[in-house]
Write a protein that binds this DNA or RNA. Sequence first.
RNA 1: GCCCUCAUGGUCAAGCGGUUAAGACGUCGCCCUCUCACGGCGGAAUCUAGGGUUCGAUUCCCUAUGGGGGUACCA
Length: 482
Amino acid sequence: MTEKVRTRFAPSPTGFMHIGNLRTGLYAYLYAKKNGGTFILRIEDTDRERKVDGAVEMVYRTLSTAGIVYDEGPDKDGGYGPYIQTERMGLYKQYAEELVRRGGAYYCFCDKERLESLKDENGVHTYDKHCRNLSKEEVERRLAAGEPYVIRQKVPEGVVSEYEDMVFGKISVDSADIEDGVLLKSDGLPTYNFANVVDDHLMGITHVIRGTEYLSSTPKYNLIYDAFGWERPKYMHLPPIMKDATRKLSKRFGDANFEDFISKGYLPEAIVNYIALLGWCPKDNREKMTMQEMIEAFDTDGISKSSSIFDEQKMRWLNGEYLKAMTPEAFYKVAEPFIDKAIGDAPWDKRELAALMQTRVDVLSDIGEKLAFLNEFGEYDLNMYVHQKMKVDFSVAKQAVKVAIWALETFDDWTDEGIKECIRQAAESAGMKAGQVMFSMRVALTGAPVTPGGAIEMAKVLGKQESLRRLKYSLSLLEAAN
RNA sequence: GCCCUCAUGGUCAAGCGGUUAAGACGUCGCCCUCUCACGGCGGAAUCUAGGGUUCGAUUCCCUAUGGGGGUACCA
């Protein structure tokens, strides 16, 4: 009965896509899918000044790795194309002219200077409707004379334009507060205000989902739909994502862009999951959700009206949850490039390292520093051997390292259990606590106060030979200290 | 200036006239423990202000304050 939902995402290809833009696309996608509708990608590339090479490809890549798949777009014709705005340039003029005929717009011949003179003391200028009531004859005469012109919206007077926003509720604006804005520029091209309305109508968009920057200009757009006799779409405006309390995420500052997070080692699913939660809360308050689960749970009710601040810390946490939930094989696969980067050509067992890393990193790029002990072993501060609770001091440490060396040289079961057992036995026969030996051994093996694992695990990754080498070196340091 | 809009802990947020005001991140403490991490347990921390309406306001209305957006031949 109800018409099929069609939503669109209309990014302008001006560089990387930041989290805020992506979230708008995500919501449009979720809403369409939730309602069994169609999600459309339209590229709004009319701003030649800001256009960036390769940015269109970036949009494709971002959406694809984010798992947001469009049903119609530049490379997926659904019969409503073209889907790239610059390719639609020819069709706006006729619509503008039709609007003039329908009484919803008019020709304006005012030049820049005149417009400039209309500015008030705040530098804000409102058009004085100078050409609004030009006679038909005069318009035709000046058109025929080739005078430059624009086509302006003829905003009805004395009306209140209102609509029901899906998240903000009733929005109403007095027509006195709406300017007779330019629809078609003197170069014959449309302004965004006009192109957007024509495109959405021609593409059969039923639900316009976009940022709040359009919340208060939507009544103006609705007046255009009305003048054409077109059906108005439903609107869902989304509050912005902020960098802090007063600043929006900004593209030029390189804030929070998707691509960066991916290369830092965030999982696309985690990023998407996190941003879905920025401004939306499912009924059951779940946090970790797959795309499918989000589609099912998505509802307009849960969308918040206030802006939210992007919190990378929480995204890190969520990413960590995803990482921990992976199978060891899956984790190894995503971690491998980062491990490679950390260890270079060194012969360490990457699977063992991955196993150590899985519960210890929230973001893959943390792997580098966690693995630093492998390549950076040299002189270190001996004070790290002193441990109150373990009752370890220099002499105990020295003794412990000797025991460890003896144990590793004597026993030969090179498995976690085997190493542990031999240390335990060696400690016992030396009259020491196993913990004291292991603590000291761990330090002696790594020269680091904090390591991604205990003595056993460290010995295991380093291998018997390297372990002994390091233990002996550490012993020499300890002996030299006294 | 004018117009639209928002306001719960540090952050994300639940709440939709009566609640000890959920939960999560972060933070702090404890437990586990050879450091770290994981895991477990616990703590601290929030309704912007002032007026109404009401028996009763975080919740409804108004105003103020603060934030965001718009006010372009940008999008």
